[in-house]
Computed example of a mutant assay.
Amino acid sequence: MSNEPTEPRADGQPPAVERGGLWGLILSTAGLVLLVPMGVLLSILGIYQGHKARRAAKQKNTTAPGAIPSVVLGWIGVAFSVLWLTGMLMFWSEVDAYQQCSSRAHTVSTQRQCDEALREDLRDTIAQRTGLPEEQVPLPKFGI
């Protein structure tokens, strides 16, 4: 496919544009926002739609705006989802304990205790797995 714009059609109308790339961009963006599990599916659909739009544009000698960004965003969404899933699997016991604690927390102070317990559990686990001293493990503040 050349970088030159396509010629106007015989009836004077502007050249046709393959709109599938825009749909792919919408799907990939939604996949990036939603993450696991729907995000992975939407990102993969965005990648597929972007490739399909590029192929169709090449066959029709038109352009497919949004096709390349949909593929790029789709792969970024897949990568973020894989990282998130890996993190959840690595720290499943800590997350599960936090969810159980949070389900029993009925006040702000007990929720803060759950948040602090999660920070400490994560700090201990990361220190054990990396060999770093616990005071050198940086963790952001989260929770209420």
Results as ranks from 00 to 15, higher is better:
M1S: 12
S2A: 15
N3W: 10
E4R: 15
E4V: 15
P5W: 14
P5E: 11
A10I: 15
G12R: 01
Q13R: 10
Q13Y: 08
P14K: 01
P14S: 04
P15A: 05
P15F: 12
P15C: 09
A16P: 12
V17M: 14
R19A: 12
W23C: 04
G24V: 01
L27F: 00
L27P: 04
S28G: 02
T29A: 01
G31V: 00
G31D: 11
V33D: 12
L34Q: 10
L34S: 11
L35C: 10
M38L: 10
M38R: 10
G39V: 01
L45Y: 02
G46F: 00
G46W: 04
Y48H: 00
Y48T: 02
Q49K: 03
G50K: 01
K52S: 07
A53I: 00
R54D: 06
R54Y: 02
R55F: 06
K58F: 13
Q59T: 09
K60E: 06
K60G: 08
K60Q: 13
A64G: 07
G66N: 03
A67N: 12
S70E: 04
S70C: 12
V71M: 13
V72C: 03
L73Q: 06
I76G: 03
G77E: 11
G77C: 08
V78Y: 10
F80N: 13
L83P: 10
L83D: 14
L83Y: 15
G87R: 11
L89Q: 13
L89P: 06
M90R: 05
W92T: 04
S93H: 02
S93E: 05
E94L: 09
Y98L: 05
Q99G: 09
Q100L: 15
C101T: 07
S103H: 12
R104G: 14
A105I: 13
V108K: 10
V108Y: 13
V108T: 15
S109R: 14
Q111K: 08
Q111I: 13
Q111V: 14
R112E: 09
Q113K: 08
Q113N: 10
C114G: 03
C114N: 03
A117I: 05
R119Q: 05
R119S: 01
R123P: 02
D124G: 00
D124Q: 06
I126H: 07
I126K: 02
A127C: 03
A127H: 02
Q128H: 04
R129W: 06
L132P: 09
E134V: 03
E134N: 10
E135L: 05
Q136E: 07
Q136K: 10
Q136H: 10
V137I: 04
V137F: 01
V137E: 13
L139Q: 00
P140R: 00
K141N: 02
I144W: 11
